[in-house]
């Protein structure tokens, strides 16, 4: 029960910090919107497979930027402070949950703007939404752990990209397949396999994160 209390407190703290500066959210939303706009200016009209691939590429880079803030931007002093008040499990759980919320918000904004600008809606919008929600879930779980590793290694953004790409590629391939099914408007039962795989990957990543993070956190 102590754990749940700590998690709640840490999420609250995170939200409060975000609310005060509004830096991360505004910055990332601006990043996504301007990337979408640049893509619109260069492609003008897009359909089907390319539309889908471009969306996931934009989301990939946006989420690396958004999530890597969670550990990379924390100062030494603040890390020490958190270390004294909370257990590592509470910390990683709260960070992951916070990042999931952030990513969900971000993907929904991005998807809305993207469909608006390109004036194209997938055949099965419901399934596409499921795909984006699963995508933001897996992006945030994986990137949270990787950004923790990268921040401990003390060599910021570059390492983050190198470490996360090979891990995220399997997720992206499954996501693109799932969302392509949605674009083609295939029967939903066809996509159950992909949804299952994504959920399994998420559970795996969550379990390994919970097991490994305490080792990473204590110095």
């Amino acid at each position: 029960m102590q754990l749940i209390k700590e998690v709640k407190y840490l999420i609250g703290k995170e939200m409060l910090l975000e609310w005060r500066s509004k830096y991360a959210l505004n910055g990332v939303v601006l990043y996504v919107v301007s990337t979408v706009f640049v893509c619109f200016l260069s492609f003008v009209s897009l359909k089907g497979v390319t539309w889908n691939a471009l969306f996931w590429i934009i989301m990939l880079f946006a989420s690396i930027n958004a999530v890597s803030k969670s550990f990379l931007q924390e100062s030494k002093g603040r890390q020490l402070y958190i270390y004294t008040i909370a257990s590592p499990l509470a910390l990683i759980i709260s960070k992951t949950i916070y990042n999931i919320f952030l990513m969900l918000l971000l993907t929904l904004i991005a998807l809305g703007f993207y469909t608006l600008v390109f004036d194209y809606v997938p055949e099965d919008m419901g399934l596409y939404l499921v795909a984006t929600i699963l995508g933001s879930l897996s992006f945030s779980t994986i990137f949270t752990m990787i950004s923790a590793i990268a921040s401990k290694a003390g060599n910021g953004g570059m390492l983050m990209a190198i470490l996360s790409f090979p891990v995220i590629i399997p997720v992206i391939t499954v996501l693109i397949k799932l969302s392509k099914n949605a674009i083609d408007g295939l029967d939903r039962s066809v996509s159950l396999d992909e949804i299952g795989i994504l959920l399994i990957i998420n559970v795996l990543v969550a379990v390994f994160t919970l097991m490994l993070f305490p080792y990473l956190w204590r110095d």
Binding site: I149, V167, I169, P170, T173, I197, L204, V205, L212, L216
Partner: peptide, 21 residues
């Protein structure tokens, strides 16, 4: 320490990549 953690974290992903997908 960090390399060991990344190694363990990456291994299930490799299994998914090579055997499941």
């Amino acid at each position: 320490k960090i390399a060991a953690i990344y190694n363990i974290f990456a291994f299930p992903m490799m299994v998914v990549l090579l055997f499941v997908l």
